[in-house]
Nucleic acid binder design. Structure first.
Length: 259
DNA sequence: ATGACAATCAGAGATTGA
């Protein structure tokens, strides 16, 4: 089973790029972030024509997440638990019914800039709620993963120019500590498990020729519970599609599971 | 550096992103 995460930065602007990637990468399941669309406006036909069912959790203009799946899904749920007043669409989860059931949680973690300020407070509060959901996934002892745009640079090696990020919400100590606290529950970072020594990026800014200078950061992560990590066969980043026409500023990250 | 670059909504330019 191949499961991918991809921050597409707007489904309307990215439909062709997304379909080209689906045709070539052939994921069984794809978790999308930043669809920037309400559910009714999501262009599902082109994706359904490719054999996927489409489940969205959209919002006007900003945020928005989705699950595309060729396999049957159960227990589809929208919104990160813990704050009924939160109206930002950043979380969708479902159980993928393959040979072995895998629970997938697609997330778009708040950016949090500028720091300090209310947006950073929201990021940290959101990560507290994420911790609680993560704790439950570990407790359930099921094969599960949380994958998406974490908006967290974990380590200096995950940025081409780490000093430029020192005061940024993506790299602030509080953000990294909150991420580390979740990891310490027992999650495996799929990319590091498969390829611990190579430097990888998943985002390159549109500005200042960041892509051409390889001035990137790694912020899209796939975190797996122990029962899921036992099934891990491969994890890769489809870096090459950043070089195409009208690309997203992120590229897909995917895992293959023995499931 | 009141920036760059891109997407959205709207129908210009502010807002958001990372």
């Amino acid at each position: 089973m191949k499961i991918a995460t991809f921050n597409i930065n707007g489904i309307k602007a990215r439909l062709n790029a997304l379909c080209d990637w689906l045709d070539e990468a052939q994921p069984d399941v794809a978790l999308l972030q930043e669809i920037k669309s309400v559910d009714e406006a999501f262009p599902r036909d082109a994706i359904e024509d490719r054999g996927y069912t489409v489940h969205t959790h959209g919002q006007k203009s900003f945020n928005g997440v989705a699950i595309l799946s060729k396999l049957p899904l159960e227990n589809i749920s929208r919104g990160l638990p813990g704050d009924e007043s939160d109206e930002q669409a950043r979380w969708i989860e479902a159980t993928v019914m393959g040979e072995q059931a895998i629970h997938v949680c697609g997330l778009y973690l708040p950016n949090g800039n500028p720091t300090p300020g209310p947006k950073y407070d929201y990021k940290l509060a959101w990560m507290e709620r994420l911790y609680t959901r993560a704790q439950n996934l570990i407790r359930d002892e099921i094969p599960a993963m949380m994958l998406g745009d974490y908006n967290i640079i974990q380590k200096r090696e995950d940025a081409a120019t780490p000093d430029a990020w020192m005061t940024d919400a993506l790299f602030r100590p509080e953000s990294r500590a909150a991420f580390q606290k979740i990891m310490a529950l027992g999650f495996t970072d799929a990319l590091r498990a498969v390829d611990p020594h190579t430097r990888h990026f998943s985002f390159w800014d549109y500005q200042e020729g960041a892509w051409q200078r390889d001035d990137g950061i790694l912020i899209d992560h796939i975190l797996m519970t122990p029962a899921c990590a036992d099934l891990l066969l491969d994890c890769q980043i489809d870096k090459h599609i950043r070089d195409r026409e009208k690309p997203s500023d992120h590229v897909p990250v995917w895992v293959k599971l023995n499931a």
